[in-house]
Amino acid sequence: MSSAATILVVDDVPANLSVLLDALHGAGHRVLVAESGESALELLPNVVPDLVLLDVRLPGIDGFATCHRLKCDARWRDLPVIFLTSLDESAEKVRAFTAGAVDYVTKPIEPTEVVARVDAHLRLRRLQAELAEKNEALAAEVAERREAEDRLRHSLDRAVLVADAAGRVTFATTLAEHLLRKYFPDTPTGVLPEGFRPLLATANAGDLRFEGGGGALAAQVYKSPVAGSQCCLVLEETRPQPTPATFLKLGLTLREAEVFYWVSEGKSSPEIALLLELSARTVEKHISNIYVKLGVENRASAIRLALDALGAPPT
């Protein structure tokens, strides 16, 4: 027998009510009574029944209309309804299910059958509620893990990625994704470049080095001794030491490129003047010209543009 529940019985026949009350009370359930469809609908906002036993023939609106109204309200949509009917035609049974019923009991009422059907649907409802709670908890856990992984991916300042034995990338930091796009632009996202595959097939860790993309990319591969397990790769980019000539492509003169180079290194105007053996006033004049040519308004914007020109990864 299921645990006690609150059952709303909607019937206007005293004899039926007496049988149902005795049977349901005997099964340990709490019983509420409404003698019409209208009174049942008025009662619902004030109680929280676990199941409704609903007679088809009622004064006023019948059981089918009552069930239809009940199911149209989001608050009661999932409330199980069992019809009580003396009708045995298939069309009426179909109409009951169409109205939203989960089951029906034919009259004359057999108390043990009513209790058995009520208990079965109460257990089913509890199982559905437990499943919904578990699904909700699982969805929240998945969302939390995805959020944590996303925070981790963006917070790590190293280029780290994890791949399986087939070369599928299962995790990568933002910097690692940037370097893979830079050095292997033709490789689809989420897949390791072909150059990594031979090392993935071996049992030991090792190093790889790739040239191009304005520099060199070194990859350290760490593997577990367990066959078919995932491996971890740490990428590191080495670029040629930038020179003032790097900034000539921006349309600067050689002297402006020299000044801009030291600006990109974080030097102040007096420091640049000493390094280039210029007056501070001349340095400021060059910096003003640089701002105009590059379309920037201040030193911070100029430095960001310099980093772009040097190929620095996004932050």
Rank of each mutant, 00 (worst) to 15 (best):
Leu122Cys: 12
Glu256Ser: 12
Pro193Arg: 00
Tyr291Arg: 15
Asp103Thr: 08
Tyr291Ala: 12
Asp11Leu: 06
Ala4Leu: 11
Gly266Tyr: 07
Val234Ile: 12
Gly60Met: 09
Leu156Tyr: 06
Asp308Arg: 15
Lys293Ala: 14
Glu236Val: 12
Gly266Asp: 10
Val47Ile: 15
Leu235Asn: 06
Leu84Cys: 10
Thr189Cys: 04
Phe97Cys: 10
Gly251Val: 04
Ile272Tyr: 08
Val9Thr: 13
Gln220Asp: 08
Ser301Ile: 07
Val9Arg: 14
Asp308Pro: 00
Leu32Glu: 15
Leu250Trp: 02
Leu58Thr: 12
Arg304Gln: 13
Ile303Cys: 06
His121Cys: 03
Gly311Ala: 09
Pro314Gln: 07
Val169Ile: 15
Glu256Lys: 03
Lys293Ile: 09
Ala302Gly: 11
Pro185Tyr: 08
Gly100His: 11
Ala23Lys: 06
Asp50Ile: 08
Thr238Trp: 04
Tyr291Ile: 09
Ala300Leu: 11
Val160Lys: 01
Phe260Glu: 03
Ser2Gln: 14
Leu79Met: 14
Glu258Tyr: 02
Ser3Asn: 15
Tyr104Ala: 01
Glu236Pro: 01
Leu79Arg: 01
Gly190Ser: 04
Met1Gly: 15
Leu51Gln: 14
Val102Arg: 08
Val105Ile: 14
Leu310Cys: 10
Leu310Val: 05
Glu144Ile: 01
Gly228Val: 05
Ser39Asn: 12
Glu297Arg: 13
Ala219Cys: 12
Ile82Phe: 09
Ile7Pro: 09
Ala273Ser: 12
